[in-house]
Amino acid sequence: MGGAAPYETRYGYSRVVIAGDRALTAGTTALGPVGVLHPGDAYAQARSAFGIALDALAGAGVPADRVVRTRMYVVDPSHADAVSRAHGEVFGTIRPVATLVVVAALLDPAMLVEVELEAYVGERSAPAGAS
């Protein structure tokens, strides 16, 4: 299954891959069908990016409470609090390990945050790619 982002098909990657007992998401931004969502709002972009990544996991049969690791990349240190607040609202009861780093830039200058999720899915009979 492909995601909504145009990059998946163009650059040859999957939004989610299940490998053994893990489900991994690709880096996910707040990219919608017509471009970057919520320009200038790191909090809203983080909420959207987490939602897109969680929807992709759900589409692969992995519920949110299986997320064990999150990674957040921000382009400006001043966005750390807003992105962390969004993370807390989404994952506060799950409490995965988390990393937040500041990067020089993302692919589109309007993108303020990118996230990755890793979930534990338990034993499966064989690794399989999802979307």
Rank of each mutant, 00 (worst) to 15 (best):
residue 60 A to V: 02
residue 11 Y to K: 12
residue 81 D to Q: 13
residue 49 A to I: 05
residue 97 V to Y: 15
residue 8 E to K: 08
residue 22 R to I: 12
residue 55 D to M: 11
residue 95 R to C: 07
residue 21 D to A: 13
residue 90 V to R: 06
residue 92 G to T: 09
residue 3 G to I: 02
residue 1 M to Q: 10
residue 51 G to K: 05
residue 82 A to D: 09
residue 107 L to K: 10
residue 6 P to R: 14
residue 10 R to D: 12
residue 107 L to C: 08
residue 105 A to S: 12
residue 110 A to E: 12
residue 30 A to C: 04
residue 28 T to N: 04
residue 37 L to G: 01
residue 47 R to L: 13
residue 20 G to Y: 09
residue 68 V to G: 02
residue 81 D to H: 15
residue 84 S to W: 11
residue 6 P to H: 14
residue 128 A to L: 12
residue 47 R to F: 00
residue 52 I to W: 00
residue 96 P to H: 07
residue 102 V to S: 02
residue 67 V to E: 04
residue 101 V to M: 06
residue 2 G to M: 11
residue 11 Y to F: 15
residue 4 A to D: 12
residue 100 L to F: 10
residue 67 V to I: 10
residue 79 H to P: 00
residue 36 V to I: 13
residue 129 G to A: 15
residue 86 A to Q: 03
residue 78 S to P: 01
residue 109 P to D: 05
residue 122 G to D: 06
residue 123 E to G: 08
residue 81 D to N: 13
residue 94 I to Q: 03
residue 101 V to Q: 10
residue 103 V to F: 09
residue 108 D to I: 08
residue 93 T to P: 03
residue 85 R to E: 11
residue 7 Y to V: 12
residue 103 V to Y: 11
residue 98 A to Y: 05
residue 111 M to V: 08
residue 88 G to T: 06
residue 4 A to R: 13
residue 55 D to A: 15
residue 55 D to Q: 13
residue 74 V to H: 05
residue 74 V to A: 03
residue 33 P to M: 12
residue 73 Y to S: 06
residue 45 Q to V: 05
residue 72 M to N: 02
residue 45 Q to T: 06
residue 86 A to R: 00
residue 116 E to T: 15
residue 71 R to I: 03
residue 7 Y to W: 14
residue 121 V to T: 14
residue 19 A to G: 10
residue 9 T to P: 07
residue 22 R to E: 11
residue 32 G to S: 09
residue 59 G to M: 06
residue 91 F to H: 08
residue 53 A to S: 04
residue 29 T to M: 02
residue 12 G to P: 01
